[in-house]
């Protein structure tokens, strides 16, 4: 019985890994036609999106995007969420055809996703807004006695915005234990490694001191992400929660993984073909 459970679990995680591979490929395909998209930032968040949407952590209904029973997911680092496009199409928020016309005239999907796209709750083009808005939603859900949760995805570079810490203090003070932040800690801003700009480490302490519960995992390990997020989601201990997901900017593209300027780098179509071929081999 126990062996079966283990087998089922590894099969489940294997399926999430397969999804992550597919999402990376689709993200690269989008970038092929929309060179303006922030590829490296989007690739670091792939497993986070996959675990939330395919791992049973988020409750959502694409046929009723504002369904009251949904968990709210605020993607505060909007520019780095092009990898969510294929997932939203796959689960039914919009037609898959949209993926082949990103950033073209009259397309639904642009270079930076915003609230006009089904599945996105807020405006995400400017950093530092999502956590505060999520705090307001979390207060509202508590007021309405809803058991739904508010997830927020933040970038580590985004943590330089002062408004993030106004919200972090607020969430701790108001004991918003229905709020789960995820930091896509890919360690690189636009121009350099964060450690060389303003080193935020130890990041856990910055949240703990604001009365947050903190966990930290490898942000590309779907099993670890899934169990940490499940634990945090179920916890109702009177504290907001943050998962620091250590990731690699440009994950899956060797030339980006080691480039401090990966944020602004684009790939030529032939490079994309080569990388996708490598992924499949």
């Amino acid at each position: 019985m126990s062996e079966n459970k283990t087998d089922n679990k590894s099969l489940f995680f294997r399926s999430l890994e397969d999804k992550a591979l597919w999402v990376r490929e689709e993200t690269l395909n989008i970038h092929r036609i929309a060179q303006q998209t922030r590829l490296a930032s989007s690739l670091s968040a792939v497993e986070i999106f996959v675990v939330l949407y395919y791992g049973g952590l988020l409750k959502f209904d694409p046929s009723d995007v504002l369904w009251e029973g949904r968990d709210r997911f605020i993607i505060s680092k909007g520019h780095g969420s092009i990898s969510l496009y294929p997932i939203l199409a796959d689960v039914g928020y919009f037609d898959r055809q949209e993926l082949s016309r990103v950033c073209t005239d009259e397309s639904l999907l642009g270079g930076i996703p915003d609230a006009i796209i089904p599945g996105y709750e807020t405006m995400n083009g400017s950093l530092g807004h999502g956590l505060g808005v999520a705090c307001g939603i979390a207060i509202a859900l508590k007021r309405m006695k809803s058991d739904k949760k508010v997830f927020v995805l933040l970038g580590d570079g985004e943590l330089y915005e002062g408004s993030v810490w106004e919200a972090a203090m607020f969430a701790g003070e108001h004991k918003l234990d229905n709020l789960i932040a995820i930091v896509d800690n890919n360690r690189i801003c636009m121009l350099d490694y964060c450690s060389k700009i303003l080193n935020m480490e130890p990041l856990e302490d910055k949240f703990r001191v604001q009365r947050w519960q903190v966990d930290r995992v490898d942000g590309h390990n779907v099993g670890m992400l899934h169990s940490a997020l499940t634990r945090l989601k179920d916890d109702t201990g009177g504290r907001p929660k943050v998962l620091i997901a250590d990731t690699v900017k440009g994950r899956g593209v060797p030339s980006l993984e080691t480039d401090s300027l990966s944020h602004i780098k684009s790939l030529k179509p032939e490079e994309i073909d080569r990388i996708i071929a490598g992924m499949k081999s």
Binding site: E121, T122, L131, G132, V133, G136, I139, G162, A167, F170
Partner: peptide, 23 residues
């Protein structure tokens, strides 16, 4: 009633979240 502290940016952001839920 919530006093968010001397934090106007968060004031507007928290207000937004509440309003998105219909308040």
């Amino acid at each position: 009633f919530i006093n968010v502290g001397i934090a106007e940016q968060n004031l507007v952001n928290v207000a937004t979240g509440l309003a998105l839920e219909g308040f």
